[in-house]
């Protein structure tokens, strides 16, 4: 109770939860601004790292699956805003958030940068597969679908899933390490 009164006596913008959420929102904004850029060295076959996916993985690694799902939903909506809402990115990122949170990391994986890079590699493939499945469904079910044939979709999927997975996993530590350090310091419920 004493800590509660001490904390609430601080002005709003200096309370830990406010600082924490501001830093979190700022990191999302940085990821969003990195998405349309193609900085030399961050590009492979015209594909850039999937920064939002790295963020969702970094967020979900030490959280519950509900928190992972909400992060996937929010960032998916943001990516929809930046490209096109059909097919939606929310599904793929929600799946990534839930799966990352459900992984039995204590048992199989150690908490280090290599294992995060591995998780990001697998999750990038999964996210692209979810999108490719949506496009294939649209191609199969909608009579006036504008998408190319299934063979072409999945050939393209192979190419971008692989380059996105490689690039994202290589760049994952750059985002995961500072974010994880920050959240460890300002954990909301100590």
């Amino acid at each position: 109770m004493t800590t509660g009164t001490r904390i609430s006596s601080l002005p709003l913008w200096r309370q830990p939860w406010a600082i924490n959420s501001m830093v979190t929102a700022a990191s999302v904004l940085v990821c969003l601004l990195l998405l349309p850029s193609r900085i030399p060295g961050m590009e492979l076959l015209g594909v850039a790292p999937h920064w939002l996916l790295i963020w969702v993985v970094a967020w979900s690694v030490k959280r519950t699956q509900w928190q992972g799902a909400v992060a996937g939903l929010v960032l998916g909506l943001l990516q929809d805003a930046m490209t096109s809402p059909h097919p939606t990115h929310t599904l793929g990122l929600i799946v990534v958030g839930v799966l990352t949170a459900r992984l039995q990391k204590q048992r199989y994986l150690q908490e280090d940068i290599i294992s995060v890079a591995l998780i990001v590699f697998a999750m990038a493939v999964i996210a692209e597969t979810v999108l490719a499945l949506q496009i294939s469904l649209n191609q199969l079910l909608a009579a006036d679908s504008l998408y190319p044939s299934l063979g072409k979709i999945w050939l393209y999927h192979q190419r971008i899933a692989l380059s996105s997975a490689i690039l994202s996993s290589l760049w994952a530590p750059a985002l995961y390490y500072p974010l994880n350090r920050w959240w460890d310091r300002y954990s909301p419920e100590p």
């Binding site: 969003l32 601004l33 349309p36 909400v70 929010v74 909506l77 943001l78 805003a81 930046m82």
Partner: peptide, 25 residues
Amino acid sequence: GMVTLAVSSAWLLRANDGAMIYEAY
């Protein structure tokens, strides 16, 4: 409150085609 705020602001951004994000970019 945080979850509602995050989801609704993301939805708002989506509704105007991410115009604010691209302005910032």
